[in-house]
Computed example of a mutant assay.
Amino acid sequence: MNGPETAREHPYDPEPGDMVVDASGHVGRVMGHEGPNYQLRHPEGGREWKAASGTLRPATQAEVLSAAVSAANQRSRGEIP
């Protein structure tokens, strides 16, 4: 069977280093996991945040590039170090 049932049978299980998108749409690199939560960090670095395992999906190349450009723009405006 395809669709939501298949997704529940085989949840996405990212490995450290994988680029993912969380439920809020933020792109992050998987740093590790603890129980049902994964620790993510922005591709350009920064503070980690937690995301529930069932809410993650692989990030597309376009999403990773967009996150990197956004961080570069924030740095150029002095909003982040």
Score class of each variant (00 low, 15 high):
residue 51 A to I: 02
residue 16 P to Y: 13
residue 71 A to C: 04
residue 4 P to C: 04
residue 12 Y to H: 14
residue 50 K to T: 04
residue 10 H to A: 13
residue 70 S to T: 13
residue 52 A to P: 01
residue 49 W to D: 06
residue 8 R to P: 06
residue 55 T to C: 05
residue 15 E to H: 14
residue 24 S to Q: 09
residue 32 G to N: 08
residue 11 P to R: 13
residue 42 H to Y: 04
residue 67 A to C: 08
residue 80 I to N: 10
residue 81 P to N: 06
residue 27 V to S: 04
residue 7 A to V: 11
residue 38 Y to T: 01
residue 52 A to M: 06
residue 18 D to M: 11
residue 67 A to R: 02
residue 72 A to Q: 09
residue 14 P to W: 13
residue 43 P to K: 05
residue 48 E to P: 04
residue 79 E to N: 00
residue 75 R to V: 08
residue 71 A to R: 11
residue 20 V to E: 08
residue 42 H to D: 13
residue 57 R to E: 01
residue 24 S to V: 01
residue 4 P to N: 14
residue 57 R to F: 09
residue 44 E to L: 02
residue 33 H to E: 13
residue 31 M to N: 11
residue 24 S to L: 10
residue 9 E to F: 10
residue 65 L to H: 10
residue 52 A to V: 05
residue 57 R to I: 11
residue 50 K to Y: 06
residue 22 D to M: 07
residue 65 L to C: 09
residue 22 D to Q: 06
residue 21 V to S: 01
residue 2 N to I: 15
residue 44 E to H: 02
residue 5 E to P: 01
residue 33 H to S: 11
residue 1 M to Y: 07
residue 61 Q to W: 11
residue 2 N to T: 13
residue 62 A to M: 01
residue 74 Q to K: 15
residue 78 G to T: 07
residue 64 V to K: 13
residue 7 A to N: 03
residue 5 E to I: 14
residue 22 D to R: 07
residue 22 D to W: 04
residue 27 V to M: 03
residue 37 N to I: 06
residue 49 W to Y: 09
residue 30 V to E: 00
residue 28 G to E: 11
residue 75 R to C: 02
residue 74 Q to Y: 09
residue 80 I to S: 04
residue 32 G to T: 08
residue 70 S to F: 13
residue 55 T to E: 10
residue 74 Q to P: 00
residue 56 L to Y: 03
residue 78 G to Y: 12
residue 60 T to A: 02
residue 11 P to G: 12
residue 39 Q to T: 12
residue 43 P to G: 03
residue 51 A to C: 00
residue 27 V to G: 06
residue 78 G to A: 15
residue 31 M to I: 06
residue 66 S to R: 15
residue 27 V to Y: 05
residue 78 G to R: 12
residue 4 P to W: 15
residue 33 H to W: 07
residue 71 A to Y: 13
residue 36 P to T: 05
residue 65 L to K: 13
residue 48 E to A: 03
residue 65 L to T: 11
residue 50 K to S: 09
residue 23 A to F: 08
residue 11 P to K: 09
residue 22 D to H: 05
residue 62 A to N: 02
residue 15 E to G: 02
residue 15 E to C: 07
residue 43 P to I: 02
residue 59 A to N: 02
residue 57 R to V: 06
residue 10 H to Q: 09
residue 14 P to C: 15
residue 25 G to C: 01
residue 51 A to F: 01
residue 18 D to S: 12
residue 40 L to E: 03
residue 48 E to Y: 03
residue 70 S to Q: 15
residue 11 P to Y: 07
residue 60 T to K: 09
residue 78 G to P: 12
residue 10 H to L: 12
residue 59 A to R: 01
residue 8 R to Q: 14
residue 41 R to P: 00
residue 1 M to T: 02
residue 74 Q to E: 15
residue 66 S to Q: 13
residue 75 R to N: 10
residue 68 A to C: 14
residue 31 M to S: 12
residue 34 E to T: 10
residue 29 R to H: 01
residue 26 H to G: 12
residue 36 P to C: 02
residue 25 G to H: 00
